[in-house]
Design a protein around this nucleic acid. Structure first.
Lengths: 234, 234
DNA sequence: ACAAAAGTGTTTCCAGTACACCCATGT
DNA sequence: ACATGGGTGTACTGGAAACACTTTTGT
């Protein structure tokens, strides 16, 4: 009996290459992860990241973008390779190496229908369900990478809507670093980077007074980058 | 005519997984890279990193260690995954994804015969020959990673013999960062990390007075790591 | 008037940097 | 005695961190 099942789990004469996407979003002041329900055996119905085999005629990064688009409808978002996972028995079904890639998306922009079709849900980063295979490890590694990267590149902006307030940005950074930051020092710091364009609009959804909206200034960021600037935040 | 050759170069019905090793060493005050001569067509005789396909029954990191051992005779050295390279046309022969791993070895410990058999030579990091495929990119990425890592983890020690002097360590860091460091500040900094054991011996090969030898204190390093210590060097 | 979030400056402290001289020893 | 690299201390500076009150406005 078990023999037959085991056989099914042992198609290991061939090397497969997959990519798995760690999709971060930011909503209601919380850093969140998009978690899927696995639709195929083995481990059908379990929580997992979304992934796919890399096609023969497809660049690795393109495969990641394809998966992301299939799952969320989003294109042209921040996506970065994380690490390869290659333990020989990491997947009971195949001999499969997976290259994990992580994406930062604007949670107000994704295609809800698509996500629903995939049986996906957003989970707060500190309330994640158990994931299959080595996906827990991937998420942990991605969190570490995100914390690290957020410190030296202004990638936090990728998670916010185009227009955002400084308090919003601070809450995001607090969610990434998982600690509180001083509002005065934070404001001083981000403004001193010279990559924010202040707008003439206010966001009044969170206070009566309203907070000024800002845009990220990509041009100035590029200019400063090439001139060797230090972007350490918080 | 060309058709036939092209055909040879187009065995792309299958996905291959390889690993390439970026092997750093430190000798005579210079940071060096071990460069190989490719032994098989296509591109036979060209300069390249050493690599291998990952075996079906082999963990990814184990594959890297196997390659390193085959080329240098060394085991148990520092080795770390760098990045996956997955452009669909990165290799004219196969549809092949390569996971680059970089190693830091003690240049006085490797097996010279083995290296010779492989037609390998050490090149100073700023005098590298052109390498095949995307290997130049791999080396660049590895250099970047090495600079970055050396700043936050004391991995520099992996490149030195077990016993080393502080001036030696400084020269190594200068080679990694490719800039000069102040001797007093450097000494202050590394000693303040509390991960060096001073020995009662001196190395007199570079001066009449002699410089005290030190060992890296792995136990203390582990202890400090878990207590959340900042290891930024230089 | 008051509640609730936005916005603003100053002081303290530490770590990075710059910098110049004495020490030990083999020749 | 002297040349050569090893080893040491101090003053300065700039950025990080700590810290409390005023402003705006919808209710």
């Amino acid at each position: 009996m078990t023999e037959i099942t085991t056989d099914l789990y042992q198609v290991k004469e061939k090397m497969y290459v997959a990519t798995d996407c760690i999709i971060f979003g930011f909503h209601e002041g919380k850093l969140k992860l998009l978690v899927f329900k696995r639709k195929v055996e083995p481990l059908k119905g379990e929580s997992s990241l979304i992934g796919s085999f890399v096609r023969l005629d497809e660049d690795l990064d393109v495969a990641g973008r394809r998966v992301l688009k299939e799952a969320t409808g989003l294109e042209n978002v921040f996506m970065q390779q994380l690490k390869s996972y290659g333990k020989k028995d990491r997947d009971p079904g195949y001999r499969c190496i997976s290259i994990a890639q992580y994406a930062l998306i604007r949670i107000d922009e994704y295609d809800e229908k698509l996500v629903e079709e995939h049986g996906a849900h957003w989970y707060e980063i500190d309330q994640l369900p158990n994931l299959i295979l080595d996906h827990n490890e991937m998420v942990q590694d991605a969190m570490y990478q995100l914390k690290h990267n957020a410190r030296y590149k202004p990638i936090g902006f990728e998670l916010l809507p185009e227009k955002f307030t400084i308090p919003q940005l601070q809450i995001l950074y607090e969610a990434i670093y998982q600690r509180e930051l001083d509002a005065r020092n934070f404001r001083k710091k981000v403004l001193s980077l010279n990559v924010l364009k202040k707008l003439d609009e206010k966001d009044k959804t969170t206070s009566k007074r309203g907070a000024f909206l800002y845009k990220f200034d990509y041009e100035n960021y590029q200019k400063l980058l090439t001139s060797g600037y230090n972007f350490e935040i918080a």
